[in-house]
């Protein structure tokens, strides 16, 4: 081991000791002092009730499958629509002006509205037209609302990625005789998408959570199921259970997004 490496190892051990020590102290304080609060027994009974958790957890997991499914079909739709809108906003020829305008208005409108409002308008509004089954399903229209909102965000992220590619790359591709389509597909987009991968990962995490908003228009997914259990047991613990289930998914995804971002920073020096 070199002298420098030895020094660094020692510094790391010291940092670890301090970090571990202070963490343990804080947690010990929480564990010791919070139960001393006058309202704690009541809170414990209604939020951290082990028996209720045990009874409702399997049902919550079942309901969570629906969240996962809604996510699983919305995410690819968002990726495709977001990409198309981003490309549409980048079309230069005057003939495409209407498409460009449409894409711009679309991103402005859906980025400008609260997600929950769009879910209400589309999730209640369209089935309200009296469509026949299965077209009156809140799954479809609720998911569509999510897709519309998130595609607008994804489109904006991708567009910023496209803008970040220096125009000399485009010039180099065009100078070889490649068309605008090939230039976009083989030269600009691969670089742009890689640059914005971390930003898009953050949107993926946000989408995982916002799936729960669909509960307001009908689907019995985990959040709504937790509400059902809450009424049944007159206890809030099912919500805590639902929160745990979300965190099991979203924390690793968030860490992964951070990791990608960090890796990219390193690459760009």
């Amino acid at each position: 081991m070199t002298r420098r490496a030895a020094h660094q190892a020692q510094a790391r051990r010291k940092a670890l000791r301090i970090g571990a020590g202070s963490t343990i102290a804080v947690f010990a304080a929480v564990v010791v002092f919070v139960p001393m609060a006058p309202g704690w027994p009541a809170v414990q009974r209604s939020f951290f009730n082990a028996e209720v958790l045990q009874r409702t957890f399997p049902g919550l997991l079942d309901a969570f499958v629906l969240d996962v499914m809604i996510f699983a079909w919305s995410a690819p739709a968002i990726a495709i629509l977001g990409l198309l809108v981003a490309i549409a906003r980048d079309l230069r020829s005057p003939a495409f002006f209407p498409i460009r305008l449409l894409a711009t208005v679309y991103t402005d409108v859906f980025r400008g509205l609260p997600v929950i409002l769009v879910i209400y308008l589309i999730g209640f509004g369209i089935p309200g037209l009296g469509l026949p089954r299965p077209w009156n399903s809140p799954y479809i229209w609720g998911s569509l609302a999510l897709v519309l909102v998130y595609s607008a965000y994804v489109a904006e992220v991708i567009r910023s990625g496209i803008d970040s590619i220096h125009r000399s790359q485009r010039a180099a591709a065009l100078s070889l005789g490649l068309g605008h389509g090939d230039t976009m597909r083989f030269v600009i987009l691969p670089q742009a998408l890689r640059n914005v991968l971390p930003a898009n990962m953050n949107l993926v995490v946000a989408l995982q959570k916002d799936v729960a908003l669909l509960s307001f228009v009908g689907p019995v997914e985990i959040f709504r199921q937790a509400g059902v259990y809450k009424s049944l047991y007159a206890n809030f613990t099912p919500y805590v259970g639902a929160a745990l289930i979300f965190l099991i998914i979203t924390i690793p995804a968030t860490r992964y997004a951070d990791y990608l971002l960090q890796k990219q920073r390193q690459r760009q020096g």
Binding site: S168, Q169, A171, A172, A173, L174, S175, L176, G177, L178, G179, F186, V187, P190, Q191, R194
Partner: peptide, 21 residues
């Protein structure tokens, strides 16, 4: 249409402009 013309005229830039990926 500039595309077929550009195919017959090569250009090399000061900053290389290779595709990094």
């Amino acid at each position: 249409d500039p595309q077929p013309i550009r195919q017959r005229i090569g250009i090399v830039f000061q900053s290389f402009n290779l595709f990094p990926h």
